[in-house]
Amino acid sequence: MPDTPLFYLDNETDWEDLGDGVTRKICGYDDKIMLVKVKFEAGAIGSLHKHYHSQVTYVASGAFKASIDGSKQILRAGDCFYAPPNDIHGVLCTEAGVLVDVFSPMRADFIAV
């Protein structure tokens, strides 16, 4: 079992600076699933990338231009997207906001050793 608490308290968790107007908080995980909050400043980019994990992303606030395997959509608070394993995907933040990412299995590359 990973070193993740049973309860996540947002006001007791610091944002991890990823640079270029993007920060994140890892909220909880085990080897099968992970939930991550990612905060974007307006104009910040979640670069196009791919990984073997399934990903569902919920737009908690703000507005984003999302791209998944060449399909594009503007998403706002309450919207979601699904990025299948190995599909190239990314976002451009058009209005500062927060995305909530769920990965399966967990993103071991996000955990500092």
Rank of each mutant, 00 (worst) to 15 (best):
Y29P: 11
C27F: 02
L99R: 03
V113S: 14
L9W: 06
K37H: 13
A66G: 04
D14C: 06
T23M: 08
R24E: 04
L99K: 01
V100W: 03
I74Y: 00
C27N: 15
D69I: 00
F64G: 01
L9K: 09
M34D: 10
L92I: 13
G19M: 05
C27S: 13
I88S: 07
I68A: 02
G21R: 05
Y58C: 08
D109P: 02
M106I: 03
G28Y: 05
A66P: 05
T4D: 13
L48F: 13
S61G: 03
H53K: 11
A83H: 02
P105N: 06
F64T: 01
I33S: 10
H89S: 03
S61P: 04
V36H: 14
E12G: 07
T13V: 08
H53M: 09
D109S: 04
G19Y: 03
V102Q: 14
A44R: 09
I68T: 00
F110M: 06
D69P: 01
G21L: 03
G46V: 04
F81I: 04
G97H: 02
S47G: 07
V98Q: 05
D79N: 01
C27L: 15
A96P: 10
V59C: 00
G21I: 02
C27E: 09
D31W: 08
D30S: 15
H49P: 08
F81D: 01
T94Q: 10
N11Y: 12
R76Y: 07
D69K: 03
P85C: 02
D87G: 09
E41K: 11
L35G: 13
I111C: 03
T57Q: 06
D31Q: 15
Y82E: 09
E12Q: 13
M34P: 10
E16L: 10
K39D: 15
D31E: 14
K50N: 12
H51Y: 05
V22N: 09
V56Q: 15
K65Q: 07
D109C: 01
E41S: 11
E41T: 08
K50F: 11
N11K: 10
C93T: 00
A42R: 14
A63W: 02
G43S: 09
T4G: 15
Y82W: 05
Q73W: 01
S54W: 12
I45M: 11
L48K: 14
G43Q: 07
E12W: 08
K37W: 12
I45K: 14
F103W: 06
P105V: 01
D17R: 11
A63R: 07
L18D: 07
L48S: 13
G19P: 06
D10P: 10
E41Q: 13
G90E: 04
K32S: 15
V113D: 14
E95Y: 03
V38N: 10
C80V: 06
M1R: 13
D69T: 03
G62Y: 00
A83P: 02
A66C: 09
Y29E: 08
S67H: 04
S54P: 09
Q55L: 08
